[in-house]
Design a binder for these strands. Structure first.
Lengths: 105, 105
DNA sequence: TCATTATGCAACCATATGGTTGCATGTCAA
DNA sequence: TTGACATGCAACCATATGGTTGCATAATGA
């Protein structure tokens, strides 16, 4: 779970996920064409995405195909975001009251 | 948006959000009691959460009350996670097929 | 076979990050 | 007023992070 949050923290890595979202199963070379960074730089980012299992790779000959794995994102939603979503309106209400109190004082 | 992702990347900061989820409107001192870290360490983490607007502060005399703001989390869900959710089943299917092809070869 | 292509591995570097300590400031209460 | 309490600010340090370069390895195709 922590690996997923950390992997999502970098904008370049989110960009890579976007690229795979647009076209799944791209090679490292494909992805490099869209990123202004050395191949090794891109490879490092992809490695972190793999560790977080946000990306799954399939070898085909000498080519490494990268596929999006939506499961970790779903888990973050279910186990983490969902929790805050449920209490969202209440939290907003508490916050408004606190700000009102501050203005009164 | 990037600030939010970055703020969520650290487990201590997610812990702070959890603490505020359990009890909203805590002071820095309150939060420090639950964290095994110096007060200044906690304050630094809270500062990042404030920048990301995940936490909103209200001054009351010499006390700084911290409140959860659920809006950024909701935005991440709507603008980012929701996108991948829609194509989730398709992405999983594509992934399975790719893995099958690999096994065949 | 051999040049080319796709990728991996390792060293290296600059900067960001997460933590500490020490001291300063502002508020409360006796 | 004064001491105690809640917090802020700044310097400092170790390590993590994001990037590079150079070289190694493996598959493809002429």
């Amino acid at each position: 779970m922590n690996n997923v949050f950390k992997a999502l923290a970098d904008p370049h890595r989110r960009e890579l996920l976007d690229l795979l979202y647009k076209e799944n199963g791209q090679t490292l070379g494909d992805l490099c064409k869209c990123m202004s960074m050395s191949r090794q730089g891109v490879a490092k980012h992809l490695a972190l995405l793999e560790v977080a299992q946000l990306v799954v790779v399939v070898w085909q000959g000498r080519e490494k195909l990268h596929y999006l794995n939506p499961v970790p994102i779903q888990q973050i939603h279910d186990r983490w975001i969902g929790k805050f979503e449920g209490e969202r309106l209440q939290a907003l209400d508490t916050l408004r009251k606190a700000l009102d109190d501050q203005n009164d004082a």
